[in-house]
């Protein structure tokens, strides 16, 4: 998913930069302002319609299924209660097996924290906020074994960066 974000952004940034450079290279030329405006603004409404259509498609594709989708209890193999406090995590269980669907019930005893699950290669695989007074539920199916790490991704004070925990995923 990170790669999708990176390459999509990179391509669009380069495309927009190329448009700016194209126009800048002709900025010292002279041309009739009215004619330039007439020709430049003609395709804008079509581009607007195109952008709207793309927006509808992007919305449907990215929101279905609902990213915070929760399955019924029967689909969950293990429930892990994750409680945050300055500056540690308390986990009711700290291991699972590949292929299991885990539901993390995430909350906080003091301030806001962020429950972020990093895989053994330290790539962020999913996250949810940990809030005092609320339980945020995060469901995840582990696809590869190894030592996962839980980091806090919501700034919570002096030892925010050191607020980590381990979660072991063993092969099925």
């Amino acid at each position: 998913m990170q790669s999708t974000a990176w390459y999509t952004s990179l391509v669009l940034i380069l495309l927009l930069s190329a448009i700016f450079i194209f126009v800048l290279r002709r900025s010292r030329d002279s041309g009739d302002a009215a004619e330039v405006a007439r020709r430049a603004y003609a395709p804008r409404s079509k581009l607007f319609a195109l952008a709207l259509a793309a927006g509808v498609i992007i919305t449907v594709v990215t929101l279905l299924p609902w990213p915070h989708q929760l399955q019924a209890g029967a689909g969950i193999d293990r429930v892990v209660e994750a409680t945050a406090r300055q500056w540690s995590w308390s986990l009711s269980e700290d291991r699972a097996q590949v292929g299991e669907r885990i539901e993390f019930k995430v909350s906080s005893e003091d301030v806001n924290h962020g429950f972020a699950l990093y895989d053994p290669d330290m790539q962020l695989v999913t996250q949810i906020q940990a809030m005092p007074g609320y339980i945020n539920r995060l469901q995840h199916t582990f696809e590869k074994p190894g030592e996962y790490r839980i980091l806090c991704l919501e700034y919570c004070g002096l030892a925010h960066h050191a607020m980590t925990a381990s979660f072991t995923v063993s092969p099925n």
């Binding site: 126009v23 900025s27 010292r28 030329d29 302002a33 330039v36 430049a40």
Partner: peptide, 13 residues
């Protein structure tokens, strides 16, 4: 952005 580009295109800026 579009308006800015129209401002500078062939405008002998």
């Amino acid at each position: 952005a579009w308006g800015t580009l129209v401002q500078i295109y062939r405008a002998n800026v």
